[in-house]
Design a protein around this nucleic acid. Structure first.
Lengths: 252, 252
DNA sequence: ACGCGGGCTATTGTCTACAGCAGTCAGTAG
DNA sequence: CTACTGACTGCTGTAGACAATAGCCCGCGT
């Protein structure tokens, strides 16, 4: 396989040794996800197939299958006979994504609590530990990844695979949102944030539903949502109302 | 639905004239969905690509893309290097599907209420009318389709596209469940069922959340769930507990 | 008789090539 | 100078062929 120029993304992955080499589709899908949530491709950008085949060193059929997957995940949108674009986001989309996320987490924890000793809990603890390590190292991207894993493993406590999968898709879309504002966010205190997560986990282990819900409510997003309505179109009534309400509860 | 030999399914569709001809991928995906929820393919059955290309009269690339879509919808499961099978269902899967459905509907109506006059309400009314017509005609399959459309349009009242899409996927999986027991169900009184739906809609229009929730709770599924644990593996604790609880509330 | 290895077949994974539509830009007429 | 029409370019949609792997059956050896 000698695509010297372009084999970067996929080629690198296959070089890293997989016991069961994943299909080119999976690798292309993963590479695309990283490009999108990493900000290399911005919402609204065209995704040209031939261009990516050269970049990945693969042919079009597997790439097209990967695009179909990404579409069902909500990261791209395919316009018949016109091509593929990275999903453009409106304020209403942000409203949808964050309301659903909230409901998913709430539902998952309602189903999970009370939670006995379980390997699922180990996964959450591992995520917290990784967050702590990343915070100590000051590695913010790494911290973000483990933070997502924390919340995902929290949802997984429910033992509800479909819910977990839905939440995973939603996380991708959240990362798409966040790719739009690659600014600030350094003012966040990672150590403090780790503390919030750790406290949340303790409440989960204690089985205190009300406290968990309360902690979740004040758990975040406000720094991200700072002035977001200036940067996005699609100001639905419900979206604006939601935004105001979120900011209101933040103050309280 | 008999796929006589050649280009039956897809060919027929393309012959019927589409203003904007959908891609073969879309048509193949739709044909596959019908085959699966129609019971032509049962959970666990292998889905052989070449076989279907001959049946549909298309080539493998679009079919493979369609399979990727169906996998993200949860109707099939792709095992790397081994092929594709129709998603096998356990009792735990049924538990997941029905709990999520309940939560989706509840969330959607919570977001939608109170609902002012809107074209979205027209859609619900149209669904009820279609149900009534099908009930009068005694056309049970048609009735079932419009019943699904009723619930989907109810969810759509929320104006939450992602929620609507998630609910649509879930409906497909519910139909997959129902494809497993193609028995009885005739004892249902369609007229009475129409009445239940109509009453639910009235409560929605009245904006009475508590009453809506109460009506939803006693809205169904028990005939379907009759003795389902005998026919399925995967008896998780939570699934059994859920089943018992559902049957408990039914009695009440 | 039973376990094991080698070849075979069926099926999936991938690539190259061709057909057809969409948007664009130049050229021309008014 | 503007509006319309035509070909052109690039892209997507689809087909068919090639490569590689997994399961299976048969024959062989113990």
């Amino acid at each position: 396989m000698e695509h010297t120029a372009g084999s970067s993304v996929v080629g690198a992955a296959s070089a890293h040794a997989f016991q069961q080499p994943p299909s080119l589709v999976d690798m292309a899908a993963e590479a695309l996800r990283r490009m999108i949530i990493g900000g290399d491709l911005m919402p609204g950008d065209r995704v040209v197939e031939n261009q990516l085949t050269k970049e990945f060193g693969i042919s079009r059929p597997p790439l097209r299958e990967a695009l179909r997957v990404l579409e069902r995940e909500g990261l791209v949108r395919q316009l018949p006979r016109k091509g593929t674009i990275v999903t453009p986001l409106t304020l209403h989309d942000v409203y949808e994504i964050f309301t659903l996320r909230w409901e998913y987490e709430l539902l998952a924890l309602r189903l999970a609590l009370p939670v006995g000793p379980s390997p699922r809990l180990d996964r959450v603890h591992a995520a917290v530990a990784a967050m702590q390590a990343a915070a100590d190292a000051g590695d913010e991207p790494e911290y973000g990844r483990h933070s997502f894993e924390f919340h995902l493993s929290l949802v997984a406590l429910s033992g509800h695979h479909r819910l977990e999968e839905a939440y995973r898709s939603l996380q991708l879309q959240m990362q798409l949102c966040m790719a739009m504002n690659r600014r600030a966010r350094v003012d966040e205190d990672l150590q403090q944030d780790v503390g919030r997560h750790r406290r949340l986990l303790e409440l989960v282990e204690a089985g205190d539903r009300a406290a968990v819900e309360h902690e979740l409510a004040r758990h975040g997003d406000r720094t991200f949502l700072e002035g977001i309505e200036q940067r996005l179109a699609g100001h639905t009534e419900v979206a604006l109302a939601w935004l105001a309400q979120v900011r209101g509860t933040v103050e309280g």
